[in-house]
């Protein structure tokens, strides 16, 4: 019995490692092997170029704005969806998930239809010399749209499972709204929140389709890292393209390493609380 169980166990581990290797590790290996094809020097040289640096800064800037905006939205939406019953709740939930089902090609186009020169608000904006499309605000808007559901998605099931007893108790004991939120709610959801923020951040930095439509591809000005990757690939600068891409992949791995570190650092608290992620 035990031998059979361990055989099944080993088989399962091997199969899933194989799946992960073929579907995820192999593409990652391609990215890094192409990036380092001409050695470390060619790789690091890429990051001394002004274009690459401005793309990195712009990507960070967009993420720095979009992620907190979605964090506030995600927490509020989760509070609403997990703590209250109201008519139209299912519909609202569907709307929160909607950005997942919109093709990036379409979402970029929708913003152009709103803010482009022939769009609903385009003429008004042009009169006032305000650039939304083909400027940083457009990039931020498209990114916020694409990553809108991530944090809410992460929080809602957890908060539903946790129930509201602790918060109600805090209220009964006389805690103010914000006191309750910062002392009870936030500590209870912080792992899921952290995790949602990391995912949201990864997706915000990697988004290509929608951003490509609203960016205008102006070099040094509205070119984010994914767009820079495409440009370099199209210039036959394969090392440059994959070097920038590998940096994005590295960012993802680093944020995940950060998550692992936090989990390890607070492992006792996690075990005691029984709260996962």
């Amino acid at each position: 019995m035990t031998t059979r169980a361990s055989v099944v166990r080993v088989l399962m581990i091997l199969t899933s490692v194989a799946v992960l290797t073929v579907f995820l590790l192999l593409p990652l290996a391609v990215v890094f092997s192409e990036a380092f094809k001409q050695g470390l020097h060619a790789f690091t040289r890429v990051f001394h170029q002004a274009e690459a640096r401005s793309a990195i800064w712009l990507t960070l800037l967009v993420a720095v704005i979009a992620v907190p905006v979605n964090m506030v939205f995600g927490v509020t939406a989760a509070w609403l969806m997990a703590r209250f019953e109201f008519r139209g709740k299912a519909l609202l939930g569907a709307f929160i998930d909607l950005p997942f089902s919109v093709s990036p090609v379409i979402s970029g186009m929708a913003f152009v239809l709103l803010f482009g020169a022939q769009g609903w608000f385009g003429p008004w904006l042009i009169e006032r010399n305000l650039g939304v499309i083909f400027a940083v605000p457009g990039l931020v808007l498209a990114t916020v749209f694409i990553t809108l559901p991530f944090i809410a998605r992460e929080l809602i099931p957890l908060m539903q499972a946790q129930g509201s007893e602790e918060e109600e108790a805090a209220r009964v004991l006389g805690a103010g709204s914000w006191q309750m939120f910062f002392r009870v709610t936030l500590p209870n959801i912080r792992w899921a929140l952290l995790y949602g923020v990391l995912l949201c951040n990864a997706r915000a930095m990697g988004e290509f389709g929608a951003v490509s439509v609203v960016s205008g591809h102006i070099r040094n000005l509205t070119t984010t890292m994914p767009l820079e990757v495409e440009m370099r690939y199209n210039e036959y600068d394969y090392v440059g393209a994959f070097a920038v891409a590998s940096l994005l992949a590295l960012l993802a791995v680093l944020t995940l390493a950060f998550k692992a570190l936090m989990e390890w650092r607070y492992r006792h608290e996690l075990a005691a609380g029984g709260i996962h992620r």
Partner: peptide, 20 residues
């Protein structure tokens, strides 16, 4: 491997396409 799972979110889709 746990960290790897999120890779498809972070890798720009064009890069994923080229790599695949």
């Amino acid at each position: 491997f746990d960290a790897l799972v999120d890779l498809p979110f972070a890798l720009p889709t064009a890069v994923a396409g080229i790599a695949l």
